[in-house]
Each structure stands twice: as structure tokens, then as C-alpha cells.
């Protein structure tokens, strides 16, 4: 197994699990990955909140720089936001001649939402699709959960 082939295998793994075992099992796999794999993000969010998210995705050793994504990232007092203009993962699958599984992009919210929401934040996602194929363009915004407005 190699890192060089990981993304195309990841994409095909999702398709395989969804078709062979059903969509619910794919959701279950993503929940397991979120618990077992996202420990670095979890530690950063628990410790530093929105700043930890900025460090995870946008810091000098952040995942988006390492993957050479085309994106903009913004951190304000109560809001963290990423606008993904060219997802490196979706681009790699397409550039290598593979079909992007139609649910491929769901893995991001499935992995990250449980980590972020369990720390008192809410998230909004917009995932771009073209003819039922992920476009590689998405946006997500994280805000501190407003407990006062939820009570009213």
C-alpha cells in the first residue's frame, strides 16, 4: 500500500462498501474513521477551538497546504470558514482517469462534523455537484453554537 495510490483507493473503497454492503454501512465506516483517525483534529479543537481548526487545515503544516489545494481560509472571532476552489482529492481522482464516486465528498462532513460539533460548534456545508458528480468545489462555515437562541 502506498500513499501515492491512496486517494483512488479511498474513492473506490467508498463505492465498494456502498454497493456491496449498503449506504448505511458506508456511513458506519465514516463514523469509525472519524473516531479512530481524526485524533489530531480532535485534540486541536478541544484545546484551541476555531484556532485549532485553522491550524489543522490552514497552518504551515496544515492538510490543505500539504495536499496543495486551491482554497481560501478565514478565521474571525466567532467564525471559521473554508472556500475550496479546487479539491486536490477530487482533482486527483479525475486527473488519473477514475470516476469520482457520487458520495465521495460526503466523507468530509461525516468525518469532521462529529469532532467539531461535539466541541460546541455548528457547521454549514455546501458541496458542489455537476450532473451528480462531485465538482471539487465546496464551502464550510463553523460557528460557535448559540445556546441562548436555541433555548428561545
Amino acid at each position: 500500500m502506498t500513499v501515492q495510490n491512496f486517494i483512488v483507493i479511498y474513492n473506490e473503497t467508498f463505492r465498494y462498501i456502498d454497493e456491496k454492503y449498503g449506504p448505511e454501512k458506508l456511513n458506519e465506516l465514516w463514523a469509525v474513521i472519524s473516531r479512530q483517525w481524526c485524533t489530531h483534529l480532535r485534540n486541536l479543537v478541544e484545546r484551541e477551538g476555531l484556532q485549532g481548526m485553522y491550524e489543522y487545515w490552514g497552518g504551515s503544516d496544515g492538510t490543505l497546504n500539504r495536499e496543495k489545494a486551491g482554497y481560501s481560509i478565514n478565521l474571525e472571532k466567532d467564525e471559521f470558514r473554508i472556500d475550496m476552489k479546487q479539491c486536490p482529492s477530487v482533482a486527483e481522482i479525475k486527473n488519473r482517469g477514475f470516476n469520482v464516486f457520487h458520495r465521495y465528498c460526503e466523507h468530509c462532513p461525516s468525518l469532521y462534523n462529529p469532532v467539531i460539533m461535539s466541541n460546541g460548534f455548528c457547521i454549514e456545508w455546501e458541496i458542489g455537484m455537476e450532473n451528480n458528480v462531485p465538482s471539487g468545489i465546496c464551502r464550510f462555515v463553523v460557528r460557535k453554537e448559540d445556546k441562548e437562541s436555541q433555548k428561545s
Binding site: V3, Q4, F6, L29, I33, W37, T63, R66, E67
Partner: peptide, 23 residues
């Protein structure tokens, strides 16, 4: 692209999950 070696761990999570569920 520099190798993102955390993905080796992710391979293991996936393989382990498949084996645990279905053998």
C-alpha cells in the same frame, strides 16, 4: 506531493473494520 503518511494509518482503520465486520 509530500507523502501524507497518516494515510497509512487510515488504510489500517479501513482494513480492520472490514475484517472485524465480515472476516
Amino acid at each position: 506531493m509530500a507523502a501524507i503518511k497518516e494515510w497509512f494509518g487510515l488504510y489500517n482503520v479501513i482494513l480492520n473494520w472490514i475484517k472485524t465486520n465480515w472476516g
